[in-house]
Design a binder for these strands. Structure first.
Length: 816
RNA sequence: GCGAGAGUGGCGGAAUGGCAGACGCACUAGACUUAGGAUCUAGCGGGUAACCGUGCGGGUUCAAAUCCCGCCUCUCGCACCA
């Protein structure tokens, strides 16, 4: 056998054969357990990135492993095809977004095919096609019917570079920049569509029954930001009520001033004439600040007195009302009660403006606190003092008692507040699914009837971004008739956030572009759902992964599905950096192009290196010498499995037994590693087995043990290197296909060692080693150890106080 | 500031209470060769050695990279959250 491993030939050959024989078509099969494996669908940017390979090919290996374990596996692929880059490219180059997108889809589909994954292309979805987005619109209508979609005139985040509004989740960082283009966002007051995701806030905090990374769950918890406390209604001196939220109702008697956010609607009403000018100036400054750039969080607090007073409902005290920008309109009610003695922010504010400080919680173990001597607030719970009827209430009951008290007065109640905001889905851009709503001068807001879906995106729109939807200037689109009264009406011209499209795509794959009256074929759904294994980047923790959970819960409430969570298990891959350890980017010139790597080393070597090089969930810098190392390994595998070696006159039975042991130990290791996404040690185990086989080969070739090793090695290689494994399988004379074979089963008896080397420790330090049979009784081990010259020497003249034998591991002598 | 995760050879990493450094990269020496950036063989944490070594300092244990306490550093997320 002189032929060498040439990946280019065999990969092309097998990809063709797999397609011809429809090897990876997934069909409902009630006789077999199903496994729905899903990986986040790519945006068709036009070029597959090494990051896509890193995310997808190990996921494919896992799905292939499940397939070999006997599961009927569905592993679909598609394209998240609406979105800004298409429009931006169109503006720059004068190509239509649809043309640009579909051309990229075509190219990326070919690139994805070079991976040799088990994608079932019959189930592909492209989210910008009308047959897909009619269902995105269908969901909007269902949400509207259910009262989840609503329209509101509100201040919203707007990216001046992308020229569109953004969901709160798409605004990142301290300077509140756009997730896409990093431009700081501005506030705009606009009529926009929202989804009431806040109705599901509590349920979204429940992760029971799903196996998701702790990190993602924590990020979602933080994002939802539940806090428990009370709502208390204060009144202004003139009798105007306003509600505040507090987590510390036990400090109500310590309130010395109130603070309203600059945007709070009450500010205008209550401001005293002599303060009006100062307040207006402050509000103008505050609005400018959000429009320019947010300053650091440790900036000094500022505020202005309104000239108005509030009455504290628990003691009738008259307290000044201030306006300050450290209170946000977007959180709670936009108004707070300020307790400087027990809240650091209020403390700093009070000190700056000379406001009163009243201590109402007595810290343990110290005497009375004089407000004028305080240097910081005392935020801890403790015994209530100076608190009218509740004075003396201990810290472990104070919150409960305080809430009961305000409830008894009828001025407040226990309340839960969430940081989560409703999901803003309107976008003032062209390349998205139109919102299926018509505004009629007589009938008002009218949903487009289901039978009129999809509301098609006109192909001939001018898509220059102006901050308003391009559809607004397309009369043919905008002008329509009211579905209710038939009179002239106008369409909603904003399009939907692309996260809408990706919130339900896992259902779209089941029966792409379904023509029934639900978004997917219920028979397919009954078999495949929910997704068993999801993989993708952690950067979507608070966007896509919250939205898709929300969608599924609404779908459940609509009776479309009968489960609560879309994806039972989730794993996140890390990020591959450039060889310079920096983020890959064209401007740095450190981009690794997968197409070139496939041309040089073949898809199998790239796949195996991506699994072997790092802890998958962590990622790290690319190493071009590393991929060469794996490429060399695959060459050695070729030679090892197929290379001719003269058979020995007699097979060495000891070597054969040792080889079988290693084979079965490797099966065990590879199984555990693949199940737990430890791809690096899975490949390492295959390398170890290959090393053992290489050494044993001349003594055992021709034996049953050798054939078992060849066969098992090839089977275990199949998830990582599907083309090479298929070629080896064929050349060994087995029937097509290796990918229809069962994963090898490990035999514990064959895997068991018959002798072990025990380390001998004296006072915990290794001094010697001893090889013994596995079943050697402890007594005999003691004797053997004590008889060793090295041990004799070490314990001479000393007393052996203890002799610990850990079977199969170690012996430790405690000597004084 | 709050929350989460991580610190092990020159590098990626292995080992979750029991012989630290599996596997690979890089490196060194040798073999084969006209030649080698191919291939094969051997070596490869530090130290001449006794010994010392898993971010630092304590502790628990016969035994700690692993468990506990305190610190340091880095990464990520959130951030005036009332």
């Amino acid at each position: 056998m002189k032929e060498k491993y040439s990946p280019g030939q065999i990969e092309e050959k097998w990809q063709k054969r797999w397609e011809e024989t429809k090897l990876y078509e997934s069909k409902i099969d009630p006789a077999r357990p199903k496994h729905y494996a899903l990986t986040m669908l790519p945006y068709p940017s036009g070029d597959l990135h090494i990051g896509h390979w890193y995310a997808i090919t190990p996921s494919d290996a896992h799905a292939r492993y499940m397939r070999m374990k006997g599961y009927n596996v569905l592993f679909p692929m598609g394209f998240d095809a609406f979105g800004l880059p298409a429009e931006n490219a169109a503006i720059k180059r004068g190509i239509h977004p649809a043309e640009w997108t579909l051309k990229n889809v075509e190219r990326m589909r070919q690139q994805l095919k070079s991976m040799g994954a088990i994608f079932d292309w019959n189930r592909e979805v492209v989210t910008c096609l009308p047959d897909y987005y009619r269902w995105t619109q269908w969901f909007f209508l269902k949400f509207y019917e259910k009262g989840i979609a609503y329209r509101k005139y509100a201040p919203v985040d707007f990216c001046p570079s992308c020229n569109t509004t953004l969901a709160r989740e798409q605004v990142w960082g301290e300077d509140r920049h756009c997730e896409r283009c990093n431009t700081p966002v501005i506030k705009k007051e606009l009529n926009q569509w929202f989804f009431k995701i806040t109705d599901y806030a509590e349920e979204l905090l429940d992760f029971s029954g799903i196996d998701w990374p702790e990190r993602v769950k924590t990020m979602q918890e933080n994002w939802i930001g539940k806090s428990e406390g009370a709502e208390v209604t204060f009144k202004t001196e003139s009798g105007e009520p306003f509600v505040i939220f507090t987590t510390r109702p036990d400090t109500l008697w310590g309130v010395t001033f109130m603070v309203l956010a600059p945007e709070h609607p009450l500010v205008d009403k209550i401001t005293a004439p002599e303060q009006r000018q100062a307040i207006e100036a402050y509000r103008f400054e505050a609005s400018r600040q959000t429009e320019i750039e947010r300053l650091a969080t440790d900036k000094e607090k500022t505020g202005v007195f309104t000239g108005a007073y509030a009455i504290n409902p628990v003691n009738g005290e008259k307290i000044p009302i201030w306006v300050a920008d450290y209170v946000m309109m977007g959180y709670g009610t936009g108004a707070i009660m300020a307790v400087p003695a027990h809240d650091q922010r209020d403390f700093e504010f009070a000190r700056k403006y000379g406001l009163e400080i009243k201590v109402v919680i007595q810290p343990e173990g110290v005497g009375p606190i004089a407000p004028e001597e305080m240097t910081e607030a005392l935020p801890a719970l403790g015994t209530m003092i100076n608190s009218g009827p509740l004075t003396g209430t201990p810290g472990d009951q104070s919150l409960k008692k305080a809430i009961e008290y305000v409830e008894s007065l009828g001025v407040g109640k226990a309340a839960v507040n969430y940081r989560l905001r409703d999901w803003l889905i309107s976008r003032q851009r062209y390349w998205g699914a139109p919102i299926p709503i018509v505004y009629c001068p007589d009938c008002g807001t009218v949903p487009v009837p289901y039978e009129d879906l999809p509301v098609l995106l006109p192909e001939d729109a001018e898509f220059l971004p102006t901050g308003e939807s391009p559809l607004k200037y397309h009369d043919g689109f905008r002008k329509t008739t009211c579905p209710k009264c038939g009179g002239p009406a106008e369409r909603e011209t904003d399009t939907m956030d692309t996260f809408m499209c990706s919130s339900w795509y896992q259902y779209g794959y089941l029966s792409p572009y379904y023509q029934g009256d639900t978004p997917f074929d219920p028979r397919e759904g009954a078999y495949w759902l929910p997704v068993d294994q999801y993989t993708g980047g952690v950067e979507h923790a608070c966007m896509h992964l919250i939205y898709t959970r929300f969608f599924t819960k609404v779908m459940r409430d609509l009776g479309l599905v009968d489960f609560d969570e879309p994806m039972l298990s989730l794993r996140n891959q890390g990020i591959i950096l450039g060889e310079d350890s920096e983020k890959m980017s064209k401007s740095r010139g450190n981009v690794v192009a997968p197409d070139d790597l496939v041309a040089d080393y073949g898809a199998d070597a790239v796949r195996a290196y991506l699994m072997f090089g790092w802890r998958w969930e962590q990622g790290g810098p690319w190493d071009s010498r590393g991929v060469e190392g794996v490429f060399r390994f695959l060459h050695r595998v070729w030679e090892l499995i197929l290379g001719d070696v003269e058979a020995p006159a007699t097979v060495d039975a000891t070597v054969e037994r040792a080889l079988r042991r290693k084979v079965h130990q490797t099966i065990k290791k590879a199984t555990v590693d693949l199940e737990s996404f430890n791809f690096n040690t899975y490949i390492a185990a295959l390398m170890e087995l290959s090393n053992t086989m290489t050494k044993a080969k001349p003594q055992v070739v021709g034996s049953e043990g050798w054939r078992e090793a060849q066969r098992c090695f090839t089977l275990m290689l199949a998830p990582a290197c599907p083309h090479l494994a298929e070629e080896l399988w064929e050349r060994m004379g087995y029937a097509y296909s290796v990918h229809n074979q069962a994963w090898p089963v490990y035999n514990p008896e064959l895997a068991a060692e018959d002798s072990v080397e025990l380390g001998i420790q004296i006072n915990g330090k290794i001094k010697d080693r001893i090889a013994v049979a596995v079943d050697t009784p402890e007594d005999e081990i003691r004797q053997l150890v004590l008889a060793r010259p090295s041990v004799q020497e070490a314990i001479q003249g000393k007393e052996v106080q203890k002799l610990i034998v850990v079977p199969g591991r170690i012996v430790n002598l405690v000597v004084r």
